[in-house]
Design a protein around this nucleic acid. Sequence first.
DNA 1: GTCTATAACTTGATAGAC
DNA 2: GTCTATCAAGTTATAGAC
Lengths: 211, 211
Amino acid sequence: MSTGEKLIVATQELLWERGYVGTSPKAIQQRAGAGQGSMYHHFAGKAGLAAAAVRRSAEQLRATAEGDLRSSGSALERVRAYLTRERSVLRGCRIGGLAQDPDIVADPELRRPLEETFGWLRDQLTEVLEKGRRSGELTAELDARATAATIVAVVQGGYVLARSAADAAPFHQAVDGLLRLLEGARAQTSPPGLRPGTETLVKSLPGRLGR
Amino acid sequence: MSTGEKLIVATQELLWERGYVGTSPKAIQQRAGAGQGSMYHHFAGKAGLAAAAVRRSAEQLRATAEGDLRSSGSALERVRAYLTRERSVLRGCRIGGLAQDPDIVADPELRRPLEETFGWLRDQLTEVLEKGRRSGELTAELDARATAATIVAVVQGGYVLARSAADAAPFHQAVDGLLRLLEGARAQTSPPGLRPGTETLVKSLPGRLGR
DNA sequence: GTCTATAACTTGATAGAC
DNA sequence: GTCTATCAAGTTATAGAC
């Protein structure tokens, strides 16, 4: 691995662990096994190196989410795959965690990858939900765009609750609560073309929020 | 206001704006209009002062949330009051934002107010939802505890999305999506004692997720 | 490309005068 | 109680040797 690469990887790790404000060039150099001169030769200071590291982390997050959301199955199964993927909950989100950092949100070049990542993620989820709605899996009243924002927010907020409690449980509880609510958004009427009797409709109700 | 008070207030502001790692004793002293000696006379260094400030912010957050959740109305109306209260969305949560700070979560004295605040908040919401469930307003299948975690997570995650986008819209969208899902958790059968006809049941369905 | 030296400044705290 | 002086260590670079 080149020195430039090592510096980016070290910066990614430190940004995740300590944020931008809490990460010093010295710490980056030590972790990367590179000297001062190397760092300033390859990058334009701390901000330039951080920008490269944040863009890299954003790419990786996208690749991972893409795997979950493009899995086979119904819309709800894809959303469930995304929500229940294994995560290092107590470490938090590599991208979302940076949103709290004042120097990240103040610098457009550092903030843009965050905005783009969450925008892309909401777009992907919106598409999955909208397809589920149009196929008759989800209720016609579902607002796919708003629901997508809710899903992403639950994950990001779950991290906050887990780190506050030093325990992953609140994260999983929040996800569980969301999944139950989403199951309540399954269409009660059948997809276009079928005509269920009233009895079918009524019988399906008690299980609306069950697993 | 006493010098001790001024130092606490200044620290509260700076913790909100810049986090713990990003806040220096010097900045606190300047904002409070106090010298080095004053600060170290009243508090045991940066950590001690921060602990007092975090506890103060936690108390204030609780008082505010209590006002929303103890308002009159149905369970859903109380939850809605909490979720739609006016917030300075782009500033983020004074308490939740600190969960990202490595030095906050590493120090039990600094992290405990966060854990207690979110624990208390989830307890309050659980109680509101459970009352709604038992009264027949909400579906019997609702998991009050998990749903409470989801609600808190949406707010905290909404802040993350808004700060990432430098725009309050994603916050409001996430809350909107959650409120629509919660309306889908309204009981379809009437409270115990009433016996609605099938017609009423069917007619109520199309509005399940509407406003 | 990578290294060390140096610089100007900030950080977090202590000492002691008043 | 509040102030200024002082301090060792760290921060974010730049300069120039190799």
